[in-house]
Write a protein that binds this DNA or RNA. Structure first.
Lengths: 328, 328
DNA sequence: TTGAAAGCGGTACCAT
DNA sequence: ATGGTACCGCTTTCAA
């Protein structure tokens, strides 16, 4: 069932049917109603491919997701699809590994599929090559980075101020006489770098200097964190509080400390289900993923309508205090 | 840059370029190499829309996901996209609420976008209307149900045998003299019904009859479960073990019991991160989501190649024993 | 081995 | 308000 069939059944031309399809006012009410009726009864829906070929845009957006198995990304995918769908757009999903050898290929494929824009969730390594192909992609179609920032022409970032949140957190910990805060992070992503910067700034603001030996990269798994904590204690690195740049890191630390019989403030980031589900419940920096995603989609849509949008939108992040902060 | 530009630059016709694009053997090596070289240097990629219009298929599959925010669905989305991508297919994501008023619209939209097939993750309510529109969708394009089963012509299901797993679990609990097992479930999905059936069968196999007052529907949130457990105790419903049809339900029960000071076996389902992250660690039925998703994609691809595939593929589920089973 | 040309299902401009 | 028609970029006969 195509536009020709509908036109024939209505005794009008395809141009008229097309007008009805596109809410063009230049159609008489009688004609419009007849066409609509026939479309209804034939259960006709126009092919978006043919439409895309004609107009040059598809109302499809590519959602490139690094680390799709992390709970955060998963949550984000749902929020973004929901927001895009509310705007009448379709989400074309692609997941990539964190090493992201294949960023270029994915972006090329998306371009080939004719997406109107691309959203990138999570950070890819900021290698020259990646930067180059992101910039190239940003030329073809608007590119919005969700949760990371790169100074690319044509790219827009939406992040939340985790740096500030960590700085404030350090101040709060200092207020409780915790001066040797361990910072566990999981890699070299933008979010991690921000949190590390916030950590350093917190120390500086308090008149101290952060000690690099308490800034530890570790795999985001319970076992890895457990091993890491043990090793630190063996090496004689002392600490009186722990921040994890992801909830899973904080939780791993908490479990390791529980095993050893130590108690201290443990703070995660993401305010995920894990934070509420652990025992005791984990204090965590809430990065408001839903707001982040909604904002990203808003930025995208504004940009698609040709409006000016800020290259970098920063939302706030704030501490959700729970057991592991109150009691210690 | 389109096929005409490439053809012109090569001094050949678009037909020849198209042949090269489609690995048609009827092209001389000289010509093929020249065309490939030009395509490379122009960084040309064919428009998949135009291709789709020409051929009638798009290598896109619609992934309809009920309850996208549940960790399981989230995980599944990642696995499925990965598997589809490995087969050269693109995932068109759509999330729907569990009430699923809009199933029909989503399916129609996917058809309009020209997807070659549809995957449905999670269960939609088995209303007549839903069944009808699923059947209609299954006529247009192969439909694969992941984690649920409906007897529809043209639809294929891939599930795992949670019923059997629960039956065996009941037997194991009876072996430990636990005869009053509470079953918390979260709704009326296929998976829930299967688990309830398994629960009943377990009792029957042991020569008992399951007591309906221990089969309780409850919202999948910690607070709701906590309230539910308290209420049961107030009402005088006694139980000596708990099964949750999702890890979050089991975890909620465990936390509620901890608060009261009770200890008993608590078993979840899904073997999610939650199970490993709780304290004590939760025993959980592993439903092997990755295998499930891979299998679903395999079924889909076989079907797309025109091969015969089973209408219902059932994988095994098995118990992952942890703290909450061993010690009690 | 190659080219010409008719679709695929729409959009949009130009007439009427 | 309506119809005619040239695209959009590619596939696929049919001829040569």
């Amino acid at each position: 069932m195509n536009i020709y069939d509908i036109a024939a059944k209505c005794g009008v031309s395809i141009a008229t049917v097309s007008r009805v399809l596109n809410n063009n006012p230049n159609v008489s009410n009688r004609t419009r109603e007849k066409v609509l009726a026939v479309m209804q009864e034939e259960n006709y829906t126009p092919s978006s491919m043919a439409r895309g070929l004609g107009t040059g845009y598809t109302r499809m957006v590519g959602l490139v997701c690094a680390a799709p198995h992390s709970p955060l990304s998963a949550e984000a995918i749902g929020y973004i699809e929901g927001a895009l769908h509310a705007e009448g757009m379709t989400t074309l999903l692609r997941t990539i590994g964190t090493q992201a050898e294949d960023v270029k290929q994915e972006l090329d494929e998306l371009a080939q599929q004719g997406v109107d824009a691309i959203l990138l969730v999570g950070s890819v390594p900021g290698t020259e090559e990646n930067t180059a192909c992101l910039e190239a992609a940003a030329c073809r179609a608007p590119l919005v980075l969700v949760g990371s920032y790169l100074p690319l022409t044509g790219a827009y970032s939406v992040t939340c101020d985790e740096k500030k949140a960590v700085t404030e957190l350090i101040a709060a910990l200092f207020g409780r006489q915790r001066r040797n805060v361990l910072l566990l992070h999981s890699g070299d992503t933008y979010a991690d770098r921000e949190k590390i910067a916030g950590y350093r700034e917190g120390y500086t603001a308090a008149g101290y200097t952060a000690d690099d030996q308490r800034i530890i990269p570790v795999e985001p798994s319970l076992d890895a964190v457990n091993a890491c904590i043990k090793q630190l204690l063996v090496k004689g690195v002392s600490f009186d509080a722990v921040i994890g740049t992801e909830d899973i890191l904080a939780l791993g630390a908490q479990k390791a400390l529980q095993r050893i019989g130590l108690t201290m403030p443990v703070i995660g980031c993401g305010n995920s289900l894990l934070a509420r589900c652990s025992t005791p419940e984990l204090t965590s920096i809430d990065t408001h993923p839903e707001a982040l995603c909604r904002t990203a989609v808003e930025v995208l849509c504004h940009r698609l309508r040709g409006e000016e949008v800020a290259a970098h939108t920063v939302l706030s992040a704030d501490l959700m205090e729970r057991d592991t902060f109150r009691r210690n």
